[in-house]
Amino acid sequence: MTDGQTAGSNTRTNKVDRVIEEYDLGDIGDELERLWLGEGDEQQSVRDLAELFNRRVLQSAIDASDVFTLGENVDHIYDALTGGESESDDRTLIRARLEQNGIDVEAVERDFVSHQTIYRYLKNHRDAEQPEPTDEERVEKAEQTIQRLRGRTTAVTERSLEGLQKKGTISLGDFSVLNDIQVLCDDCGRSYDVADLLARGGCECET
């Protein structure tokens, strides 16, 4: 039986709709479409939407478990399960605690979706079509994507260091994580902060 075929029926559906129904995710399909077609800060890529969807799946599985006493939030748990955390020990511990609370971790992970699956769902099953962006919108979207990834990298780095710090693996006092992205133009040797480069419209040597 394929992902698109329900047991005991000839009715074909898609994985996203099946998982929405199985985990009682309500109108998340409408939310995915709205965010994909949104404008400015609202618009999100299919990669972002796949992560949003998978985190909701995990949250639903946790909410449906018998008793849940794990202190970490869902974002931390998801990062650990999907390899976002640096320590395999942390991932192993979290998986064990989830399973102790009645959660079939492997089944939940099988129900996670890829960004390609989200794209096909929006295009083929919801007939969603993004308008062609202007050059300004492309630059703005690129900056938003970079800033989100930079913020995520900073957050993961902070959590990883705090985990090592608490276990006594490393010696570290109060700290801050600085995450600057510099772009070096090989033609002229000038270096720019990525946000400044986008605001300028490129390197001076090209103008």
Rank of each mutant, 00 (worst) to 15 (best):
K123G: 00
D187G: 00
R120F: 04
D180G: 05
A155Y: 07
A142H: 00
R148I: 01
I181V: 13
E129Y: 09
N124S: 07
T154Y: 01
R126D: 10
L164C: 11
I146A: 13
D127W: 06
Y121L: 08
N179S: 14
V177E: 02
K141L: 09
Q182F: 03
E140I: 01
E137M: 01
F175G: 07
D180Y: 14
D187C: 01
Y121N: 08
E140Q: 12
Q165W: 03
V139N: 05
A128Q: 04
L184N: 12
V183S: 05
L172F: 07
K141H: 06
V183I: 15
N179A: 15
L184E: 08
E162S: 06
I181S: 12
E137F: 00
C185W: 00
K167S: 14
R150I: 11
E143A: 15
E136R: 09
G151P: 06
Y121F: 15
D174C: 02
V177A: 02
I181L: 14
E132W: 03
R148D: 12
E136P: 02
C185A: 09
D186R: 13
S176F: 03
P133K: 10
I146L: 15
R120I: 00
G151I: 06
Y119K: 11
G173W: 02
E162Q: 12
L178R: 14
E136D: 09
C188P: 07
E162T: 10
E136H: 01
R148L: 09
N124R: 09
I170M: 12
H125M: 00
A155L: 08
D174V: 00
K141E: 13
C185G: 02
L161Q: 04
A155W: 10
F175E: 05
D187T: 11
D174K: 07
V156I: 14
E136T: 07
C185V: 09
I118Y: 10
A142K: 04
V156Q: 12
G151L: 08
T134M: 03
D127F: 10
I181K: 09
A142T: 15
T145F: 02
T157P: 06
D180E: 14
A128D: 07
P131N: 01
P133M: 05
G163D: 10
G168S: 13
I146K: 05
G173V: 06
A155M: 07
D135C: 00
C188F: 00
G173H: 03
K141N: 07
G168P: 10
S160Y: 07
P133Q: 13
D174P: 08
E132D: 08
K141V: 02
R120A: 06
I118N: 06
Y121I: 04
I146F: 11
T153A: 11
G168K: 02
